[in-house]
Simulated assay, not measured.
Amino acid sequence: MVNADGHRLAFHVTPGRLPAIVLDAGGGLDSSYWKNLVPELAAATGSEIITYDRAGLGDSDEVPGPWKVESAVSDLEIGLRALDVTGNVVLVSHSQAGEVATCFARANPRLLSGAVLVDASLPELYTDEEIARLAAANKPQVDAARKDPSTKENRQLIATAENYVPMHRAYHQVAWPDSVPATVIVSEKTPFDGSPEDARLWRDAAAAFVKAGPDRTLVTAVGSSHDIPIERPGLVLGEIEKMAAARG
């Protein structure tokens, strides 16, 4: 447990060599999302493997108020310092954790030796038009959560919704640093399997991100839904192995 600005965060460490591989799960998910991949990844790479629960999830303390990506970045920075991880990190981020990864990379480019972004939320998606579409589409789920705030998952959904529009307008302006190589794995079905337009924009955002800088690779998880680490673990493992081997 790591103390971070008045709240505690749960980190789980499998010892190993550098590069250290940090796994960050998507919105509403905790470190247990990676439980099947961690032992395979440790055996395949020999790297130190770190998973953690963002504030309000898993064994980590909740923090009142709207969810802020800056706070999530600060929490990860504090956690890695507490674990004496000061460089040569491969960051693996799924879904909403892509927002943490992008802002973390922007603030700490020298700490990262590479990243694997797994169907990650990327800045290129969030035009004003798309933010409005997504906020409207999410409203019924958020309203239902507000009627039943008894679970951590619902409280996190509410916290994210409270700051959704201004946060994503700001996120749209964040650029990934050219010095950090990145592999983007995009799902064929995307989080918007029932909305062809949003699905297209999600895939287009991944392609635009890759084209926007050097040392970026786009991989499509053919036939997969948004849950690529669950449905295509071998693909995710292989891409992390490649990144770790290149930076080891």
Score class of each variant (00 low, 15 high):
residue 161 A to P: 03
residue 92 V to H: 03
residue 243 M to A: 14
residue 178 D to V: 10
residue 57 L to D: 06
residue 152 K to V: 00
residue 171 Y to I: 06
residue 88 N to Y: 11
residue 230 I to V: 15
residue 177 P to A: 07
residue 247 R to Y: 05
residue 11 F to W: 09
residue 14 T to L: 10
residue 105 A to E: 00
residue 12 H to Q: 14
residue 189 K to M: 11
residue 69 V to Q: 06
residue 38 V to I: 15
residue 86 T to K: 15
residue 103 C to T: 11
residue 139 K to D: 11
residue 160 T to P: 02
residue 200 R to C: 03
residue 225 S to A: 11
residue 53 D to C: 02
residue 213 G to A: 05
residue 115 A to Y: 09
residue 59 D to A: 15
residue 55 A to G: 12
residue 163 N to E: 13
residue 77 E to A: 11
residue 155 R to T: 02
residue 157 L to R: 15
residue 146 R to F: 10
residue 52 Y to D: 00
residue 138 N to F: 12
residue 174 V to I: 15
residue 247 R to I: 01
residue 124 E to P: 03
residue 188 E to R: 02
residue 180 V to W: 05
residue 53 D to P: 01
residue 247 R to S: 05
residue 191 P to I: 10
residue 159 A to H: 01
residue 216 R to H: 07
residue 88 N to I: 03
residue 86 T to F: 15
residue 202 W to Y: 08
residue 193 D to Y: 08
residue 86 T to C: 14
residue 70 E to F: 09
residue 182 A to Q: 01
residue 21 I to S: 08
residue 105 A to W: 01
residue 215 D to R: 12
residue 173 Q to G: 04
residue 231 E to H: 01
residue 63 V to A: 10
residue 147 K to I: 09
residue 11 F to H: 06
residue 201 L to G: 06
residue 95 S to E: 07
residue 213 G to V: 00
residue 73 V to Y: 08
residue 13 V to R: 14
residue 171 Y to D: 00
residue 150 S to N: 09
residue 231 E to W: 04
residue 43 A to M: 07
residue 194 G to V: 02
residue 216 R to M: 03
residue 72 A to P: 00
residue 19 P to I: 12
residue 218 L to C: 10
residue 186 V to P: 00
residue 117 L to A: 03
residue 212 A to F: 03
residue 37 L to N: 01
residue 75 D to Q: 12
